[in-house]
Design a protein around this nucleic acid. Structure first.
Length: 375
DNA sequence: AAAACGGGGCA
DNA sequence: TGCCCAGTTTT
């Protein structure tokens, strides 16, 4: 049975390592999720899955994993592909730096590690996009290294089980939970343990409405015994989203329109978008007309506004974007437009990776009528 | 230590 | 609506 150790500094008790992992692994044997990256020990496949699943639910990432592996089946294929192809597969998944880092990480492995992913936690940490969690995941899943992979699930389980009140987004918490997990992980099967505890968090010890009534650990669970299941783990302050106001110009010229790649240090890096201006506030119709007439991209051209969309609120974790799409026709594209933007037919837009905001707007609004090609 | 960085699903 | 998801990087 479970042995209980008392820590003199903190008022939580510790499970005997062997008992905790054996009970967990027994649960896992009959409850494990069937996932494609679990049928392989190929470090590249596992790497890809880990990056896709960063801050992303399995259900959301799964179709992206299949598409990614179909298009980039090996590290070599990925490293030799154009970045735009990678971004195109990643479109809609969010956190686009992940895709860029995975791509440059693959090239880094080609350059610095002879095309083979290194096999230790410490070496894996040097790869772009592999942080403490992902490096541990790859090291334990693919190479059997006994290093704990501490993700949101593990934070939650350990916080509840042992009554850890340290806010989980603090630096201190990272060390604390890593050390705790380090004591629990069995050295004979660390990969299965890491997968098991993650699944336990995803399926049993869920953020809301966990299944405490059938939990084999409930008898020794601090949170359950003290009615604090809904209060643990302690989460840090939530950030208040900032407002930004985007005005996109869908330029119609002989059935064509214009786009450009985002390259600033900002959201949606490496994705494409229409010409746009950002304003510090929402414009009324009078200000909108004035703003449009002042856009330098259109100087010297005859501009006719064909359509102005409703204001679309697009929520990101840290931003509220208030977007307006302005469809306008110009008689003659100025040089500054031709030289800085890609001219293309609207039905070719799907070949470029676009932010969800733009993609969704195009799907919702019948814009084709404004892009009929004149003879 | 804190902020930046997406998008979707669920009560 | 608010929370949170197989987190990492930058400031």
């Amino acid at each position: 049975m479970l042995k209980v150790k008392f820590d003199e500094k903190k008022f939580f008790f510790c499970f005997d390592t062997m008992d905790f992992s054996s009970i967990l692994l027994k649960w896992y044997a009959s409850n494990a999720r069937e996932l494609p990256w679990r049928n392989t020990t190929d470090p590249y496949s596992i790497w890809v899955s880990e990056v896709i699943l960063q801050q992303t639910r399995v259900a959301q990432g799964l179709p992206y994993y299949y598409r990614f592996m179909e298009r980039f089946p090996t590290l070599q294929v990925l490293a030799n592909a154009p970045l735009d192809d990678v971004m195109r597969v990643w479109q809609g998944l969010g956190y686009y730096t992940r895709a860029r880092n995975l791509y440059y990480g693959a090239r880094q492995v080609m350059d610095e590690f002879g095309g083979r992913l290194p096999s230790t936690y410490l070496q894996l940490l040097k790869i772009k996009g592999l942080g403490p969690y992902s490096a541990a995941a790859v090291a334990s899943f693919a190479f059997g290294e006994p290093v704990p992979a501490v993700d949101g699930n593990v934070f939650r389980i350990l916080a509840r089980l042992f009554g850890v009140f340290t806010p989980i987004d603090s630096q201190a918490a990272r060390r604390e939970f890593f050390n705790l997990a380090q004591e629990l992980i069995p050295h004979d099967n660390p990969g299965a343990f890491n997968q098991a505890i993650i699944d336990y968090g995803a399926l049993q010890c869920t953020p809301k409405s966990p299944q405490c009534s059938i939990c084999p650990f409930s008898e020794f669970c601090y949170a359950f015994q003290n009615n604090l299941v809904n209060s643990l783990p302690i989460k840090g302050k939530r950030i208040i989203p900032r407002d930004r106001f985007f005005y996109y110009f869908m330029i119609s010229h002989q059935g064509d329109t214009f786009i450009k790649k985002r390259t600033n240090r900002d959201i949606w890096h490496s994705l494409y978008e229409f010409p746009m201006v950002e304003q510090s506030k929402l414009l009324n119709s009078e200000e909108l007309v004035k703003m449009i007439s002042g856009v330098e991209l259109f100087q010297g051209a005859e501009v006719v506004v064909l359509h102005v969309s409703d204001v679309i609120k697009h929520k990101l974790s840290h931003l509220n974007i208030w977007a307006t799409f302005i469809i306008l026709e110009i008689d003659k594209p100025p040089y500054i437009l031709l030289s800085n933007y890609i001219k293309l037919s609207v039905n070719q837009l799907h070949n470029y990776s676009l932010p969800r905001l733009i993609d969704s707007y195009m799907a919702a609004e019948p814009v084709e009528q404004y892009f009929i090609k004149q003879k």
